[in-house]
Computed example of a mutant assay.
Amino acid sequence: MLGVDNDETICRLSSPNLSSLNQNIEQGGYDVAQLIDRILRDPATPREDVMVQPTHIVTRQSTDIYANNDQHIAEVLKYIHENISQKITVDELVELVPLSRRLLETRFKRSMGTSIYDYILQTRIEKVAQLLCEGMSVSEAAIELGFSDIKNLSRMFRQQRGMTPSEYRREILRLKH
């Protein structure tokens, strides 16, 4: 479960604690003020919606990735998230649990709705996006997550996010200012 506005009090009072989208509310306030200023200067100014873009997810218990009914899948998920900056192979994950590769892949897909490989890739790209939001450059984020080829990272990022990491970083910086 995921909330919006990231109101700390509400998020902490719910049980389990509610994960929430953090939004660039301050920028939204500036955008509204600019629109009001334009309308005051010229009443014929067309009215428009002001979009407040989310910047990242603040993770709490409600989106705990380890909360899984299958203890083996929970163990694999924990390992993936704790080692996301390393190269992780499916064979490595098979060694963690008493399941065959085929059974692990089948149970993982049933539980998570995606293959192990795709999940690892999605998690790595999500981590890159998070690092970019925290102010890292694309090359710093690539190094942090063990991507040796920035072009490859850029291609995978674009497939998942619809823009390159550089475009994403510029958009985040624009929204913050």
Rank of each mutant, 00 (worst) to 15 (best):
5 D>T: 02
7 D>W: 14
14 S>K: 03
15 S>E: 15
17 N>K: 05
17 N>E: 07
19 S>C: 03
20 S>M: 02
21 L>F: 12
22 N>K: 08
23 Q>F: 05
28 G>V: 03
29 G>T: 10
29 G>H: 06
32 V>F: 05
34 Q>I: 02
36 I>M: 10
37 D>K: 13
39 I>T: 07
42 D>G: 06
46 P>H: 11
47 R>E: 13
48 E>V: 07
48 E>W: 09
49 D>S: 11
51 M>K: 13
52 V>L: 03
54 P>D: 01
57 I>T: 06
57 I>N: 05
62 S>M: 02
68 N>R: 11
69 N>S: 10
69 N>G: 13
69 N>T: 03
69 N>K: 07
73 I>F: 00
74 A>Q: 04
77 L>M: 03
79 Y>F: 12
80 I>M: 08
80 I>Q: 08
81 H>M: 06
82 E>G: 14
84 I>V: 07
84 I>F: 10
87 K>M: 04
87 K>T: 03
88 I>V: 10
89 T>E: 15
89 T>S: 14
90 V>P: 14
92 E>F: 01
96 L>E: 02
96 L>Y: 01
97 V>H: 00
105 E>R: 09
108 F>V: 07
113 G>C: 04
116 I>R: 00
116 I>E: 01
118 D>N: 09
121 L>M: 13
121 L>D: 11
122 Q>T: 09
123 T>C: 05
123 T>D: 00
125 I>N: 00
127 K>H: 14
130 Q>R: 12
136 M>V: 05
139 S>G: 03
140 E>N: 14
140 E>L: 13
142 A>H: 08
143 I>S: 14
143 I>Q: 09
143 I>K: 06
145 L>S: 02
145 L>R: 01
146 G>A: 06
148 S>F: 15
149 D>G: 14
150 I>A: 15
151 K>E: 15
152 N>L: 13
157 F>N: 00
158 R>C: 02
159 Q>N: 13
159 Q>A: 15
160 Q>P: 01
163 M>S: 08
165 P>G: 04
166 S>F: 09
166 S>G: 07
168 Y>C: 00
169 R>P: 04
172 I>Y: 01
